[in-house]
Write a protein that binds this DNA or RNA. Structure first.
Lengths: 164, 164
DNA sequence: TTTCATGTAACTCCATAAGTAGCGTAACGA
DNA sequence: TCGTTACGCTACTTATGGAGTTACATGAAA
């Protein structure tokens, strides 16, 4: 009846939507970087393609969190106050509304049994989603960066920009 | 067997793993049904194929929650005490380890920034997962059936087995 | 005008749930 | 023994969505 899960969050070679963590990774690097960063550089940083970067960053740009500049010396720049943007904001801007991989078909079934089951499952999912939203909404990018700096100092590491 | 292609209409877009709710639906029907139920009957109930039913039920059988009988009068029977089986047990038996659609690549990145980001995101996911696991683990099939009966009575409905 | 960068469309690739078909196997009954 | 019933299993197909890739247009700076 319990609980000991060894199938963790990032398990079993599953194809997860990594846009949120990728974007956070990029933004934190951008925050400690002077001048614009090109999609090419970001792509190299993430081990991916410039087009994939642009595709993801487009959502951030539309939300006003970054801006992009074309031509020589162009690239991506942060355009918002990091203290006022939460992880939830990024998650939404990046277009990742689907949090859960499980759920139920037949939203409005005729069968009373099915209806009861769906409600029970979906109530539980809703609870977990509410928690997730609350937690992601409570962390600002500035806090994330700050906690990273603190961790760095306590470890004495100097590799603030290992990738790139 | 009918093609049943109308699921694409209402379900526009997301293809969620509905094995948990489907299985619960089946089990609750089985609980209030005398004798074995064939995969064919269950499939008709769920609006799906007998093979899909067997595939899903196989996990429950391996876990000992149901047993299957071949030949005349064969089919699926509940083989466990419903009070001792939780929704979490079913979820796991049914082979649905992937709860979240979001996550992060690179479990152990070299980049310190990425590491910090991943930790923040995954901590949050782990929290939500823990809540989910706790909730699913706390509800037994017997309780689910009981709460369903209570709801039925309070509504005065008599359609205990609408599908099937 | 050349070069660099984004913007976007149109693909391919891959993993997974689900749907389908076919054949094997076990259990019963006549 | 034979036919029917039902599960068991394998292989294939379909649909979906994130990611990867190619190609080309656009705009800005040197």
């Amino acid at each position: 009846m319990v609980a000991n899960l060894d199938w963790g969050v990032e398990d079993c070679g599953v194809r997860t939507d990594s846009r949120l963590s990728r974007t956070l990774h990029v933004l934190l690097h951008m925050a400690r970087h002077d001048g614009p960063m090109t999609s090419e550089a970001i792509g190299r940083m993430l081990g991916t393609n410039p087009v994939v970067v642009r595709r993801t960053m487009a959502g951030l740009r539309d939300a006003g969190y970054v801006k992009s500049e074309k031509g020589h010396g162009g690239g991506w720049t942060i355009a918002a106050n990091l203290a006022e943007v939460s992880l939830l904001d990024i998650h939404r801007a990046v277009g990742g509304p689907r949090i859960f991989a499980i759920g139920s078909d037949h939203p409005n079934p005729d069968c009373a049994v099915e209806k009861a089951v769906n409600e029970a499952v979906e109530d539980t999912l809703r609870e977990a989603e509410a928690l997730l939203v609350a937690r992601l909404g409570a962390i600002s990018l500035a806090e994330l960066a700050r906690s990273f700096d603190a961790q760095l100092q306590s470890c004495g590491t100097t590799t603030a920009d290992t990738c790139g």
